[in-house]
């Protein structure tokens, strides 16, 4: 029993080490005084200072946040609609095809998504003259197409868990379908919608591949900037930048997790209270 326990713990330790030592070392070296990325020269926050005085970095960060904000919001609206449709309308013509098409980007290699988006934008520009130039709009559109899938999956799972009859009850009490959606369906699935948004936001924020295919001159997002800088050698300010990105993404994921869990916990606790009060 004891040995097995040790074995499991050490396997867990190895697993975590494999994932997190590279990230940890990056975070540690972002506070490195030395100019050489591989030599420790004492603690310093000067790379963060230089980062924030670098206009190129700040512009890239703002662009990334803007793209993430817009694409996550639109992806959430579209993804929620698709999720509700897939969960509620069990029978419609082409449902299988629709659900396959919605979830295909999950397994599609990013390079393929990137190339096809690029081709699409080029052809569009030839046919209707839009988009004349690739940049914010094209990157945002491309991000919407692949982050929407995640929202759809989360919302669909939540919808399948929820009791169909509460929507029927609202309808029975005089509400038309859109009122049912507004009063009952959306409030009930709102934690899932929120966590879908956060997920879409973080996915958009750290995407490199699809962004690099669909962006144009002058529109460099933060991950693209890091990528181009690394090609010239790893410098400590890259470490600082990457640490910031890890921080933002981690916060997003943690908040999404809290949203998902908190509602469940509160419900369980209240149910126990009700049981004790009436038992």
């Amino acid at each position: 029993m004891k040995r097995r326990h040790t074995f499991l713990v050490s396997m867990l330790g190895f697993g975590f080490a494999f994932f997190y030592i590279p990230i940890l070392s990056m975070i540690v070296y972002s506070f490195n005084e030395s100019r050489l990325a591989s030599v420790w020269g004492g603690f310093s926050t000067k790379w963060y200072v230089s980062l924030f005085s670098n206009k190129q970095v700040i512009d890239a960060l703002i662009l990334s946040l803007e793209i993430a904000l817009v694409s996550a919001s639109i992806a959430t609206i579209l993804g929620t609609m698709a999720g509700i449709a897939l969960a509620r309308f069990t029978k419609f013509r082409g449902r299988l095809l629709f659900s396959g098409l919605v979830t295909a980007p999950l397994i599609m290699p990013e390079v393929i998504t990137g190339i096809s988006s690029l081709m699409f934008f080029i052809l569009m520009a030839q046919w209707i003259g839009w988009p004349a130039q690739r940049g914010f709009t094209t990157v945002t559109l491309a991000h919407i197409t692949f982050s929407m899938v995640f929202v759809t999956t989360i919302v669909q799972a939540r919808m399948l868990q929820s009791d169909r009859s509460i929507e029927e009850a609202a309808m029975d009490l005089g509400s038309r379908p859109w009122e049912v959606l507004r009063d009952v369906t959306l409030p009930v699935i709102s934690p899932a919608v929120m966590s879908g948004w956060l997920l879409a936001f973080t996915i958009s924020l750290d995407d490199v591949v699809i962004t690099s295919f669909t962006t144009g001159p002058g529109s460099t997002t933060l991950p693209l900037l890091i990528w181009s800088k690394v090609k010239l050698g790893v410098t400590p300010d890259i470490n600082a930048l990457a640490t910031l990105m890890v921080g933002i993404v981690a916060i997003g994921v943690v908040i999404a997790g809290i949203f998902m869990n908190r509602a469940e916990h509160r419900r369980q606790r209240d149910e126990q209270m009700a049981f004790r009060a009436n038992g």
């Binding site: 009791d163 009859s165 509460i166 029927e168 009850a169 009063d183 409030p187 009930v188």
Partner: peptide, 9 residues
């Protein structure tokens, strides 16, 4: 409704 279908929120 059999499940009562109360609005949880």
């Amino acid at each position: 409704f059999q499940s009562y279908a109360l609005f949880p929120h």
